[in-house]
Amino acid sequence: MILHLPLAELEVGQHLYWRIGNLNLHGQVFISSWIVIGALLAVVVLGTRRMERDPKGLQNLLEFLWDYIRDLARDQIGEKAYRDWLPFIGTLFLFIFVSNWGGALIPWKLIHLPSGELGAPTADINTTIALALLVSLAYFYAGLSRKGLRYFEYYVEPTPIMLPFKIVEDFTKPLSLSFRLFGNILADELVVAVLAFLVPLVVPLPAMFLGLFTSAIQALIFATLAAYYIGEAVHESHH
């Protein structure tokens, strides 16, 4: 879809395709994902290389983040099982958060691609669906590994009438997770792009700050809901 306006061009839905076998990959998502992953790894490695008793600078920041994620996971999953899922929840939160903020703060348009443009990896539906399906797998695995086949009792609690709703929930959970994140981030990028394209200076600023805020909230929501679903699966109801 290309908008034909007299001033300039705005491209939406253009991708940098990489073909591997029969697969068409969105190359720009991979590039920005690698940059995000590299940045995260670099920060973590740098921050934990010389750890001291006195938490200074990066180490302090990482410890603060760890505390934050641990509190989030413990609140949602519960004291008994949260340690197993802390790395997963933390990875989700940090990857989505850095993706969102990276998409909003890094001047990606300095790099001109032959097709499509760089941006937040989470503005691509493939990324968010992959993350949401991982969450689905995670909560199924969490429930089955902790309770065995008794996990399926959850579908008929408190009454068997709930069975169809709970089955539908298994489909709506990843759907809502992926679409919420994708929609928010893509909408934010589009709003900023359209405003910047109409009035290049100052006017996009409020939208950009709002975008930073919603981006952070979306990362928090995704991680919290993932933890909540896992907590729901491992929760031992009155036995």
């Binding site: 300039a8 348009k109 300095l110 790099i111 001109h112 910047a196 290049p200 200076l201 600023l205």
Partner: peptide, 26 residues
């Protein structure tokens, strides 16, 4: 597919001024 990478130097098109302000305030 990948030929055609380049640097975009158009200041308004890249939104660089707004980004600089946002990063500064942040």
């Amino acid at each position: 597919a990948n030929h055609g990478f380049s640097i975009n130097t158009n200041i308004l098109d890249t939104n660089i001024i707004n980004l600089a302000i946002v990063v500064g305030v942040l």
